[in-house]
Computed example of a mutant assay.
Amino acid sequence: MGQKPEAEVIELTLPARSEYVSIARLTVSGVANRMGFGYEEIEDIKLAVAEACTNVVEHAYGEQGWEPFRILCRLYSDRLVIEVIDRGKGFGFDEKRDGLKPIRVDIDIDEVVEGGLGLYLIHSVMDEVRVTTEDGVKVAMTKYLRQDEVSSDDRSITKTEA
Rank of each mutant, 00 (worst) to 15 (best):
L26D: 11
S18P: 00
L26P: 00
A32M: 06
I10T: 02
Y61W: 07
S22P: 00
F37N: 01
E58T: 03
E58I: 02
C53K: 06
L75W: 03
E8Q: 13
V57M: 11
V31N: 05
E67F: 14
R25T: 09
I42A: 10
E8V: 03
G62E: 09
L72Y: 15
Y61Q: 01
L26V: 05
R70D: 03
C53N: 07
L12F: 05
W66K: 12
S77N: 11
R34N: 13
C53Y: 12
A60G: 12
A7M: 03
L14G: 07
I10P: 00
W66Q: 11
A48P: 04
S18H: 06
A48E: 09
G30M: 06
T13F: 03
V9C: 09
T13M: 07
N33H: 13
A24C: 06
L12T: 00
E19D: 08
G38L: 10
A16N: 05
V31G: 14
A52K: 02
I23Q: 08
A24T: 02
G65L: 14
S22I: 09
E19T: 00
V21K: 00
T13Y: 03
I42F: 07
P15T: 08
L26Q: 12
V56F: 12
V49W: 07
G62L: 10
E19H: 02
G36F: 13
Y76Q: 01
T54M: 15
E67M: 11
I42Q: 05
R70V: 01
R17Y: 09
S22G: 08
A50Y: 02
E63Q: 14
Q64T: 02
A48D: 10
Q64V: 00
G65N: 07
R17L: 09
R74F: 12
